[in-house]
Design a binder for these strands. Structure first.
Lengths: 198, 198
DNA sequence: GATAAATGTGAGCTGACAATCGCATTTTGG
DNA sequence: CCAAAATGCGATTGTCAGCTCACATTTATC
């Protein structure tokens, strides 16, 4: 950020800018995302944007930051532990969380993940780490002895697999198919059961 | 294509252009992919590009077409049927094929899938359909009665999952990790085994 | 109320790049 | 050889979006 907003008014302006930018970005895609349109949609002038953001990418970076926070909040809904939960119930919660995450402004989510280049690794990496942690927790819950090194890989496999399926489904507008949800749960459970056996 | 190359020379020029463009696209990404740099890298003039391609996107479209052909060829290496193959061996072949596909010019592959907008659905859709067919074949091989409708979803789940894991691994430069390969095979087999049981 | 600091404005500057077009060179066909 | 067609060239044009800056307006401070 080029300059920190000090007064109430400017803080509101920054919010307006970011929200307008997010809408434009989701609607147009990164390639056609322009600061001029953002300003016009937000009802502010381009100058105001550059008062607080050094360039277009920094603005997108702020959008990403806010969006990922919202996504984590959506996943956190499925967090409470319960010793008596079956593996199925646990997997279901995890998957519902991931689906919910993708439902937080689907278009924006897709554009942010697929199109916007990431300047600083920091934001995205932090998020991915937190994301992975959720999976590790489910894996730790699965029966059988836990080999830390293998669990680490299992986490990456599971997160990659679930993300892949959900992401593809989102692109085809089939995020809420119950059949798909059931198969995904089956996938996760089958994998975890198989691991405990070997 | 604006004009079909009729002579030997022009056919070679078109190849040069497409190859240079692919290199530039992979190196710079879609956002910074310029026809001017392509011309300079290929040792031809911009004019020659527009002699055969109506615009930049059409050029990218041709790159995609050629790349997807190469990818399919890479997967096809793991195609021969063998009735005596175990489920594990079959899954292993499938996964090795997908990994091989991602190894065909990794950078270009990522840019084409993640960044370049698809003008005409045709090319990509054809490819995805063919891709799915490979998975369906493996699923058909799994034991148990086959419910066509459920198999269809299973194909999408499997392809999405495997793609997701491999894609993530590729981004982190861990495409050739044997441990990851083993876990992926386990994932596919566990899922298919579980389906036959229920 | 006066002064300074913070904030808001938008016309316009700048650079970059897609795409063109008139002309030069090469190949083909007779 | 010689037209005519095909191919190749690259300076130039038009457009457009990121970003600046000189000035206007609002808010804070005393």
């Amino acid at each position: 950020m080029r300059k920190a907003p000090r007064q109430q008014r400017s803080r509101a302006t920054v919010d307006t800018i970011v929200e307008a930018a997010a809408r434009v970005l989701a609607w147009r895609g990164w390639a056609d995302f322009t600061t001029n349109e953002t300003a016009s949609v937000g009802g502010v002038s381009v100058g105001s944007i550059y008062q607080y953001f050094p360039n277009k990418l920094a603005l997108a970076e702020e959008i990403r930051k806010r969006h990922l926070d919202a996504v984590l909040a959506a996943i956190s809904g499925s967090e409470e532990r319960d010793g008596a939960m079956t593996l199925e119930q646990c997997a279901a919660k995890l998957i519902d969380g991931v689906v919910a995450a993708h439902n937080v402004d689907q278009d924006l989510h897709r554009v942010l993940l697929d199109e916007v280049p990431l300047a600083a690794r920091s934001t995205q990496d932090e998020f991915e780490a937190e994301y992975l942690r959720r999976y590790q927790r489910v894996i730790a819950l699965a029966p059988g002895k836990s080999d830390p090194e293998r669990d680490e890989i299992a986490g990456r496999v599971l997160s990659g697999a679930v993300e892949g399926v959900v992401h593809t489904a989102a692109r085809h507008g089939e995020l809420d198919s119950p059949a798909l949800r059931a198969e995904l749960i089956e996938l996760v459970c089958a994998y975890l059961r198989g691991r405990s056996a070997s």
